[in-house]
Design a protein around this nucleic acid. Sequence first.
RNA 1: GCCCGGUUCGUCUAGUGGUUAGGACGCCAGGUUUUCAACCUGGAGGUCACGGGUUCAAGUCCCGUACCGGGUGCCA
Length: 504
Amino acid sequence: MVRVRFAPSPTGPLHIGGLRTALFNFLFARKNNGKFILRIEDTDQLRYVPGAEDYIIESLRWVGLDYDEGPDVGGPKGPYRQSERVEIYRKYAQELVDKGWAYYAFDTPEELDAMRQRLREARSPVQLYNHITRSEMKNSFTLSESEVKERIESGEPYVIRFNMPADRQIVVHDIIRGEVKVNSNTLDDKVLFKSDGFPTYHLANIVDDHLMEISHVIRGEEWLPSLPLHVLLYEAFGWESPQFAHLPLILKPNGKGKLSKRDGDQMGFPVFPLDWTDPKTGEKIRGYREWGYLPEAVINILAMLGWNPGTDQEIFTLDELIEQFSLERVQKSGAKFDPDKARWFNQQHLRRKSNEELAGMFRPILQLQGIEVDDRYLLRVIELLKERVEFVEDFWTKGYFFFEAPRSYDPKGVKKAWKEQTPQIMRELKEKIIQIQDFTSENIERELKQWIESKGLSFSKVFTPLRLLVQGSTSGPHLFDMLELIGKDEIIKRIEYGIENIKK
RNA sequence: GCCCGGUUCGUCUAGUGGUUAGGACGCCAGGUUUUCAACCUGGAGGUCACGGGUUCAAGUCCCGUACCGGGUGCCA
């Protein structure tokens, strides 16, 4: 039985790197008829951010990554919030102490700093709390059993550290990267249980993955260095280890490093699925959703960052991804995020939507403008604009003139199309348009072209200024379809108004 | 510093010892269009990080170096 989990910690808004980890877990679970579990890793009291958990849940829901078990939906292996499981971790930490795999330590943060500082100054290649240095610190190795007991009973703060064995060659296996070998001497006695009564990630993670019967741990590459520790923890408990897959990181588009919080607003693309307002600073960051991205597009963008099907297919629905996903085809190297391609994905998915769906998404934007239109008109507008739009908002920015007369005229367009003789031509054109009885696209085109030819004018001398008058700029949708849709009376009004108001 | 991982057009990538190194985004040009977009056709863009091996043959296997990234916390 495949059981995988997405285990974010609620220290801020979910980042798209995290969302991709969730996606790959989800795809793997669905592909293998397994379970996808959401677990909230809120063991850090200091970094806890109110609202972050709700944000995570809402984000997953928005993109359609439904989980089978989780804090809000429950499940047989709950609770799914680590803060509600502290007693469990305490018990297992104790078990490791009893078995000799862990020990008590009483060093203060200052003492730890001093130790690292000293080692650095001594040019020691490693500055670790390990099998060598622990003999100089305050812990179960240096204190007598009774003194340890006494300190604990007197309420002195303590932590429980892992007893990292010396000189062990650890070989771990990763589905994406193959074998990774590490010597335990480069590892340290990690804190497993903190003095605040909470476990660290390492302990809680292993205990929960075991108790929740997780079969595959699919997580970001930043966890690869702690994999040997985790494997040793499974050994210490005598548990069978799940399989591991470490996903490549998503990197900044230009420049270096992991994609992070502020990159988005600076470089003109979102880094978070939804809008987020920092509860402390009040700072607002825009999300994919509010930016106008379709959830389908976000899924597609993330799926293609670090995975590919091995075919030329690039546009996928979630179901198609489930069908074709495999961990074996996940890339080893980090992928730079490409904002241009992200836009392209959105455009592709937008075009695959029905006109009715698009109308449903566009109407709220119109309502914001105080505009009410009937469905037939709206659907025609969408039909005319659909191929030239990347985001839903573009229906407004590129088509507002279907709903109201242009308020201004694009200066470049005016310069290009509005010549000395143009007002006179437009006056005559207006008279011609008044005469057109059958005001349909096809007929308007035929009659106007005939008229232009009979006057010995060129199409562009007439049509470009006409377009300018009707829509305020010189590039846009099919001219005659647009004229038909806007209607004869309104067209005439716009021509009259424009002739008076465009100055040359 | 130390540990781990990575390295194919600007970007995402195909490629598993023998290919003119393929596709997509973006860019450029032509076609189409009253215009722009879309679409179609074409183009530029890669000494497969570098250096050494192994082999009749290496982007593909091995070693070293460089560079990039991650980790190195009582953070996850």
